[in-house]
Simulated scan of single mutants.
Amino acid sequence: MAGRYVAIGDSFTEGVGDWNKSFPNGVRGWADRVAKQLGRQDPRWEYANLAIRSKRLHQIRDEQVERALALKPTLVSLYAGGNDILELRTDMGALMREYEAMVARIARAGARPLLFTGFDIPLSPVFEPMKRRNWLYNDHVRRIARTYDAVLVDYWCFDEYSDPGLWDADRLHMSPAGHRNLAAHVLRILGVDHSLTPRLPEREGYAGLVAGLRRETTWLGEWVVPMFGRRLRRITLGDELQPRWPEPVRPADGMKRLARAQREASVRARTSGGG
């Protein structure tokens, strides 16, 4: 049966790590892959994606929830709070009350919420204190999913994500293989027949202590330090970005074709506006 799927959230749902210049914002992601398979099941399925990287939970609440519900969705996927968990000053109790209020709003509007727990990303010991916060987050998400009859994707249980090959170079976002694998999980949980075959990368051999330390130092310098630097300056990688699919499209019409049409429409709008 066809419906309208709207995705909201941050970089996890925008598709960061699944880099592809053919798609809006230069990424594809698991949500696009899910939408494509829904369109194959029934070409009447429609899809919008309002997620933007770096958004915190209150921004998703203020900027995306009502906009999503105005599209009259039947299914709304939500992942929010990951960026807040990285901030040690975050009040987790208050955060999860805000999260539950969002889920309740979605459910009251008649859409089925699709929720995600968070995975214990295999990072440096620098981030070990975040695990307990992630476990608390996950406990709340599971309870909220039961309360509001939401579809739950218990991402925390997917042991294959301990494989570094499912993560991008920053170790915070999934690689293309990770996005594809997650899309297959989501479709399985939704009970949707699909043609996605997870392609797990081959494990890397042991690089040695010196090479391992060099890799950790490079990662800290190229990804971790800049990330916290942006937080101190109160800027994010999503500040200049717009939602990838702001209006519903039909994935059965071809996602790349739709993306090309969207780019052409944007160019025409800028040209006519400047004339």
Rank of each mutant, 00 (worst) to 15 (best):
R132A: 15
V141I: 14
T74D: 14
W156F: 05
R146H: 13
V153N: 02
D163M: 06
L187A: 12
A150P: 04
D159H: 07
G81P: 01
A183P: 08
R97D: 14
Y137M: 12
Y161E: 03
L152I: 01
N83A: 10
T90P: 11
C157P: 00
L182R: 00
I189E: 13
V151F: 06
V103M: 08
R105F: 14
G118D: 03
T117Y: 11
V186N: 10
W156I: 02
E63I: 04
R97V: 04
M102P: 05
H140D: 13
P73L: 04
D163Q: 15
R188N: 15
A107W: 07
R105G: 11
R133H: 04
H185Q: 10
A145C: 05
Y79V: 00
V186F: 13
R188T: 15
D139L: 14
A111N: 09
L95Q: 04
T117K: 08
R105P: 08
V153I: 15
M96D: 01
A94F: 08
R89A: 13
S77P: 00
R67S: 12
D168T: 03
E87C: 02
H185F: 02
F119Q: 01
V126R: 04
G110H: 11
A183I: 00
A104Y: 08
D159Q: 09
D84H: 11
E66H: 10
W135E: 13
P176R: 09
D62F: 07
L86K: 02
L86E: 09
L172F: 15
E98W: 10
N83P: 05
E98L: 11
G110A: 14
M174I: 02
D163P: 00
R67Y: 07
P176L: 11
N181C: 07
N83M: 09
K131V: 06
L88W: 13
A177H: 06
I106H: 03
S162E: 09
V103F: 09
V126Y: 14
Y99T: 00
D62K: 06
N83C: 10
G178E: 07
R188D: 15
I106R: 01
R171M: 08
G165S: 10
A169Y: 06
Y99S: 01
R97L: 11
G81E: 05
D154G: 06
L86V: 03
D163Y: 10
R180M: 05
M130E: 10
H140I: 03
M174A: 07
L115T: 00
L182C: 02
L187H: 09
L78F: 03
P176G: 13
T117V: 01
V76K: 03
R171V: 01
Y79N: 04
A94W: 06
R142Y: 11
E100Q: 12
A101L: 14
L172R: 00
R188M: 09
L69C: 12
L123Y: 00
W156D: 14
A104Q: 14
A111E: 07
